[in-house]
Amino acid sequence: MPDIGQSLGAAIAIAFGALSTGWAQSRIGSAGAGTIAEKPELIGAAIILEAIPETMVILGFVVAAMILML
């Protein structure tokens, strides 16, 4: 059973990662939607760009899982 410090650490690790990813994706998503409206051929690039900030929450998740389970 993880202690309160571990739980808090895991929560911080994933929460900030998730918030940052969400914020970045909202900006990229709206810009991407505008781009696709004008140049539909750039849809592939827009999808890739949208996936880039997910690294933050994924690494946050990895850290949180390691804090809780190791």
Partner: peptide, 13 residues
Amino acid sequence: ILSYSRLMAIGMA
């Protein structure tokens, strides 16, 4: 390189 940790993380989710 560290970005590849998603292979484990997404799988675990």
